[in-house]
């Protein structure tokens, strides 16, 4: 039992590390995008490798725990939640990298037209990731309602970004490269929100044993 508890303790600690790393990376990537900070964007893009490595370590750890100890009840739900949540965290890491790459691409473009709504989407998405990671680490479902509300808000913002950029694209097809990048970034942020909801759903399962849909 002691060995199992030590292994579970380490698993949760490493999950916490991955959660913090992903939170600060998406936060940095969004900040770099809004402030056109290409140095910060490069730093965030490079961080993805660490996220990916940590994800692989955690995946192996969860599978090892399942094989060695065949956990049940809350232990099983925790291990299963970690196994799913790390995939979502890794994806958020990947979207952070894509946003950082888009920032580097857009560095020559000084026009802010088409940006409207994206910084707000960024802060909502970052807030959602922080809530989801916090709930995962603390095993606390109190933030899940807010995640659900933010998800709807994020969708509304995304729709207006797409509408606005489609109009701009119609008026100025020459700016297609830039405008398409903005639309992509809004898509990445929307996916970051979706993955946060996925994490939240797993946390609800871990805590209550019931499957719920969040932000559907």
């Amino acid at each position: 039992m002691k060995r199992f508890e030590d292994d579970m303790g380490r698993l949760l600690e490493t999950t916490r590390d991955l959660g913090s790393l992903v939170c600060s990376t998406i936060d940095g990537a969004v900040r770099a995008f809004c402030e056109r900070d290409t140095d910060l964007a490069r730093e965030m893009a490079e961080r993805y490798q660490r996220i990916s490595d940590l994800h692989s370590v955690l995946e192996e750890d969860t599978l090892r725990i399942l094989t060695l100890y065949q956990p049940t009840a809350v232990d099983m739900r925790t291990v299963a939640t970690v196994l799913k949540a790390i995939t979502y965290l890794e994806r958020i890491g990947k979207y952070s990298k894509k946003i950082a790459k888009a920032t580097i691409f857009l560095s020559d473009d000084i026009s802010a037209e088409g940006m409207e709504g994206i910084p707000e989407m960024g802060s909502v998405a970052v807030r959602m990731v922080k809530l989801a990671v916090g709930s995962l680490i603390d095993g606390d479902t109190s933030g899940l309602d807010e995640i659900s509300q933010q998800e709807h808000f994020l969708d509304t913002l995304r729709n207006s970004v797409i509408r606005r950029n489609t109009e701009l694209l119609r008026d100025c097809p020459a700016a297609a490269d830039v405008l398409m990048r903005y639309m992509s970034v809004s898509r990445y942020l929307e996916r970051v929100g979706d993955n946060s909801c996925d994490i939240a759903e797993k946390v609800a399962y871990m805590v209550t044993g019931r499957h719920v849909e969040i932000g559907a």
Binding site: F4, P71, T72, A73, V74, D75, M76, R77, T208, R210
Partner: peptide, 17 residues
């Protein structure tokens, strides 16, 4: 019983605590 037991006692028994 093995996923989400209702009783704390059951939970403790099946998780080995």
């Amino acid at each position: 019983i093995f996923n989400k037991p209702k009783e704390e006692l059951t939970e403790r028994y099946i998780t080995g605590r």
